[in-house]
Amino acid sequence: MKLIINHSSMQPIYEQIVEQIKNKVMHGELKEDTALPSVRTLAKELKVSALTVKKAYDVLEEEGFVNTVHGKGSFVAFANQGLMLEEKKKEVEAELERAIRKGRSCGMTDSEIRMLFELVLED
């Protein structure tokens, strides 16, 4: 599996792994019941600690993206459309929050940000 880790990023490595695997599931690159690489295999491939990969897999399991079967490995869970839609909404919300913070840091008022949002929305 092709994942890219940015060691100079402020984002923890396990979160980078989680984000990239979730994106692959949501974009159909990883299908339901697809086996993920073992923790050790992915850790070796990414040159990171096995504990880091284990933590990423645990987060993916908690969020419903992965099922882990003891002794067999981790597999992509049922591609729940509702769950995927919720994840995409979270991404949009995060992007909007970043844009608002950036606008405010440039001295824009809330009404200016709203007007700009409306203009962009019309396109």
Rank of each mutant, 00 (worst) to 15 (best):
Val120Pro: 13
Ser38Glu: 10
Ala50Ser: 11
Pro37Lys: 09
Thr34Ile: 07
Phe78Tyr: 07
Lys47Leu: 08
Glu61Phe: 03
Thr34His: 09
Ile21Asn: 04
Leu85Ser: 07
Met1Gln: 02
Arg104Asn: 01
Glu87Cys: 14
Ser9Ala: 06
Glu19Asn: 07
Val25Gly: 03
Ser74Glu: 11
Glu19Pro: 06
Ile113Cys: 14
Val39Thr: 03
Lys89Ile: 12
Glu112Thr: 09
Ser111Val: 10
Asp58Leu: 13
Thr41Leu: 15
Lys88Asp: 11
Leu51Asp: 15
Glu91Phe: 01
Glu93Trp: 07
Phe117Asn: 15
Lys102Glu: 14
Ile4Thr: 10
Val69Cys: 11
Ile113Phe: 06
Met115Cys: 03
Gln11Ser: 11
Leu3His: 00
Glu93Tyr: 10
Arg101Ser: 15
Glu87Ala: 10
Gly103Val: 09
Ser8Thr: 08
Lys88Cys: 04
Gly107Thr: 02
Leu42Ser: 00
Ile13Cys: 02
Leu85His: 00
Val53Gln: 12
Lys2Gln: 08
Gly73Ala: 05
Val18Trp: 09
His27Pro: 00
Val25Ser: 04
Ile113Gln: 12
Glu97Ile: 05
Met1Phe: 14
Met84Asn: 12
Lys55Leu: 13
Ala56Val: 03
Leu36Ala: 11
Gly103Glu: 15
Met108Thr: 00
Leu119Arg: 13
Gly73Leu: 01
Glu29Ser: 13
Pro37Ser: 12
Glu61Ala: 09
Lys24Pro: 00
His70Ile: 15
Asn23Pro: 06
Val76Asp: 02
Glu15Lys: 05
Glu19Phe: 08
Met1Tyr: 08
Gly107Pro: 03
His27Trp: 02
Glu63Asp: 09
Gly71Tyr: 13
Phe78Trp: 00
Leu36Thr: 01
Glu45Arg: 05
Lys90Pro: 07
Leu42Met: 12
Met26Lys: 02
His27Thr: 11
Ser9Val: 02
Leu60Ser: 08
Leu96Cys: 00
Asn67Leu: 01
Ala43Lys: 10
Asn80Tyr: 06
Tyr14Asn: 12
Lys47Ser: 15
Glu122Trp: 08
Ile17Met: 08
Glu91Asp: 04
Gln11Val: 10
Val39Arg: 03
Met26Pro: 01
Glu19Gly: 02
Glu45Ala: 01
Gln81Glu: 15
Ser38Ala: 05
Leu42Lys: 13
Ala50Asp: 04
Gln20Ser: 03
His7Thr: 09
Ser38Leu: 01
Leu42Trp: 15
Val25Pro: 00
Asn67Tyr: 14
Leu42Phe: 06
Leu119Asp: 13
Glu45Ser: 07
Ala99Glu: 03
Val120Phe: 09
Arg98Tyr: 04
Glu122Asp: 12
Ser74Thr: 09
Val120Asn: 05
Asn80His: 07
Glu95Ala: 07
Lys102Tyr: 10
Val59Ile: 07
Met26Val: 07
Leu60Phe: 01
Glu86Asp: 12
Asn67Thr: 12
Leu42Gly: 01
Gly28Met: 10
Lys47Phe: 13
Glu118Val: 14
Glu19Lys: 13
Val48His: 02
Ala43Tyr: 02
Ile17Arg: 03
Lys55His: 14
Val69Asp: 11
Lys55Arg: 15
Arg114Asn: 11
Val92Ser: 08
Lys88Trp: 14
